[in-house]
Simulated scan of single mutants.
Amino acid sequence: MNIGYLGPGGLHRNNSISKQCVGGTTGYVDRLIFGQHHIHNRPTSKAVYDSGPFDPEGLLGVLTSLLQIWLGVQAGLILLTYRSSSARVYRFLTWSAFCGIVGLLLCGGFKNEGWIPVNKNLW
């Protein structure tokens, strides 16, 4: 394991020196909190990362799912509260800009080398 590297890892990164860094920050947090034995043993990313257990739906995955639910509730409230299409579009664009700016700040505007690497194994 390449100490201090929390990126996605895999065989393709840094001449395979980071191949055991599967999951990046999410894998690190899951192993720290849940331990190695409570993590999915046969992840779909095993072929790419050539590594051991990793759970793409771990603790940080649940937090992002909760954020998506909250954004859905906000969208529903906008649709129920505002009748004019211009008011709805304004609020949707405002929320989109806010989430986009937060996302850029968290990943530093880069794909994998920011504060929080973009490495979620999508469903």
Rank of each mutant, 00 (worst) to 15 (best):
C21Q: 04
N41W: 02
T25C: 06
G58H: 02
Y82K: 03
S86L: 15
W123I: 14
N121I: 06
G9P: 02
W123L: 14
E113F: 09
R83Q: 15
L60F: 10
L32T: 15
V118K: 01
L122I: 03
R83D: 13
Y49S: 03
S86K: 11
L67S: 04
W70N: 07
S84N: 12
T94P: 03
V62A: 03
A47V: 07
F54H: 04
I3Q: 04
F98M: 15
A75P: 01
G23D: 10
G23M: 12
R42C: 04
K46E: 14
L80W: 13
W95A: 00
P8R: 09
G72N: 02
H40S: 07
L11N: 01
V62H: 05
V89C: 05
K120E: 14
A87Y: 02
I78A: 02
Y49A: 06
Y82G: 00
G108D: 15
P56D: 07
I101M: 09
V89R: 03
G72D: 06
V73P: 00
Y82Q: 10
N41H: 06
N112D: 09
H37G: 00
H37F: 13
F110V: 04
T81E: 13
A87Q: 12
D30L: 03
G4Q: 04
I17C: 06
G24A: 01
I33A: 09
G27K: 01
C99M: 05
R31S: 04
F34N: 15
P117E: 01
G4W: 09
V22I: 13
G114E: 10
L66W: 15
L93N: 13
G109Y: 03
G23F: 01
H37L: 13
L93Q: 08
T64D: 05
S85T: 09
L60Q: 07
Q20D: 09
L77R: 13
I33Y: 08
F98W: 12
P43Y: 02
G7D: 09
V102E: 02
W123H: 14
E57G: 01
R42G: 01
H37R: 08
K46M: 12
L63C: 11
L122Q: 00
T26S: 14
N121K: 07
N119I: 04
S45P: 07
G52Q: 08
F98Q: 05
D55A: 05
A47K: 04
G76I: 05
T81K: 10
N2D: 12
Y82T: 01
G109V: 09
N14Q: 10
I116M: 08
L106D: 06
R13I: 12
L122W: 02
P53K: 02
G61F: 09
Y82D: 06
L71P: 12
P56A: 07
T94M: 13
G10C: 05
N2R: 10
Q36V: 15
H40Y: 14
S84K: 14
K120M: 12
C107F: 11
N121H: 05
K120P: 01
